[in-house]
Design a protein around this nucleic acid. Structure first.
Length: 217
DNA sequence: AAGTACCA
DNA sequence: TACT
């Protein structure tokens, strides 16, 4: 018997879970959108393929990413920033599909953030073994808008920490269709994703796809 | 430093 | 904690 946290957890019937004052997990919230999300994702990655970026420290990120929307998050040796064009192609990032915007706005409203107007959607692709170290989202122009994070595919353990990197983190399992929304007093909390466990998802195979919606500009 | 190595 |  070798039961870890995942083995003991199922996609929850609790539709909404409060993580902190202004942070919520909306269980299965994205499920009704999935039939439209996946074809839209296929078009995005055709126009702007997933790629591995390098951090300002010069190290390769294990997670592969692309973007849609007016602005896209990128990183290189010189730092993190949002750009209007894909550095790999020189073309604008693919437009944000209407279904992406609808989902992001509905999730934000459900968590109490009205009139969310994201102009950036970072698309992260996790394969088993990949991770995203604890970090803050602080490359955006204003911190009033929340962050909306959509999970698809195989499950992950999300870490939600405090305002200092060394603060204790809460581990939250995220399953296909779950949406996490944080803003307000929790907007700058550290967060990350632990190394992905092996898995297979009926629609997405051996990967987890995450959409992170932000107001960057 | 959105990353890793190393230590206690 | 240190650090390219």
């Amino acid at each position: 018997m070798n039961l870890d946290l995942f083995d003991t957890l199922e996609p929850s019937d609790n539709r909404q879970q409060q993580l902190a004052q202004d942070a919520f997990v909306l269980r299965g919230f994205a499920i009704p959108y999935v039939p439209e999300l996946l074809p839209a994702l296929a078009a995005i990655q055709q126009a702007a393929p997933f790629r591995h970026l390098v951090t300002p420290g010069g190290l390769r990120m294990s997670v592969a990413l692309t973007n849609c929307g007016r602005l896209g998050w990128t990183s290189d040796r010189h730092g993190y920033r949002y750009t209007a064009t894909d550095p790999d192609s020189g073309r604008p990032w693919p437009a944000m599909p209407a279904v992406f915007l609808r989902l992001a706005q509905a999730a934000a409203a459900q968590a109490g953030f009205d009139a969310f107007m994201p102009d950036a959607c970072l698309v992260n692709r996790y394969e088993p073994g990949t991770k995203l170290s604890l970090h803050q989202d602080k490359d955006e122009q204003d911190y009033n808008a929340p962050i909306v994070s959509v999970s698809l595919g195989i499950p992950a353990l999300f870490q939600f920490g405090g305002h200092a990197r060394s603060d204790k983190t809460e581990r939250v399992p995220l399953f296909h269709g779950d949406v996490v929304v944080w803003g307000g007093v929790d907007r700058l909390r550290y967060h990350g994703v632990l190394p992905l466990k092996e898995g297979q998802h009926p629609l997405l195979g051996r990967q987890r796809i995450n959409f992170t919606f932000r107001k960057a500009g």
